[in-house]
Computed example of a mutant assay.
Amino acid sequence: MPLTPLDIHNKEFGRRLRGYDEDEVNEFLDQIIKDYEAMIRENKELQNQVASSQEKLGHFTNIEETLSKTIIVAQEAADEVRNNAKKEAQLIIKEAEKNADRIINDSLSKSRKVALEVEELKKQAAIYRARFRALVETQLEILMQDGWDSLESREPKGIEA
């Protein structure tokens, strides 16, 4: 068991002839008591500081573990968001490609339909032109016949000029 300042203070030494000076011994013991008490106080303060530091260390260790777990969770969430974004982007691209293919196919179909209609209109225009030419030629032939000259020289009956 360690000595206490009270043990040092209460220590009695036996007396002998030609012993030490009692006042010097008592002064020295008083100095030892003061120093020893100071050491005990400093030791207690250091123990309190160590306990406080250990408590803080435990607190910071918990914070570090929590932060590590949080970082891992955040990283996993970020990876999941990134993967979901990639999947969504791929779906959007596929949908856009499908829409582009549909638009191209619709455009090609409409283009073929318009080309067929243009060809049909060209045929109809050619037929109309041929019929109109035939009609004009027929009318011209009628106008070129000799019977028209005789009509021009005659005056209508009952109408005098």
Rank of each mutant, 00 (worst) to 15 (best):
G147T: 11
K157F: 01
T61S: 13
N105Q: 15
G19A: 04
E88N: 06
E141M: 12
K98D: 10
D23C: 05
E45Y: 07
N26Y: 09
L143D: 08
K86D: 08
Q124M: 09
K157S: 06
I142F: 12
Q31Y: 10
E27K: 08
A78H: 01
E45F: 05
S153D: 14
E97M: 07
K113N: 13
K34D: 05
S111T: 07
Q124L: 10
S52Q: 14
S52C: 07
Q124D: 09
D23A: 08
N84W: 01
N84L: 04
T66K: 10
A126T: 11
D21K: 03
D149W: 07
K157N: 08
F28S: 09
V81T: 12
D101I: 02
E120H: 01
D23G: 02
R131K: 15
A100I: 09
D149K: 10
Q145N: 14
I93M: 11
K94Q: 13
V50P: 00
G19K: 00
L143C: 08
E24K: 02
A134N: 11
A77F: 04
V50C: 06
E120R: 02
G19T: 00
K122Q: 09
S150K: 12
K94M: 06
L151M: 12
L121V: 02
H9E: 15
S153M: 12
I33H: 00
I104W: 02
L121S: 07
M144R: 15
E65C: 03
A38K: 12
E65F: 04
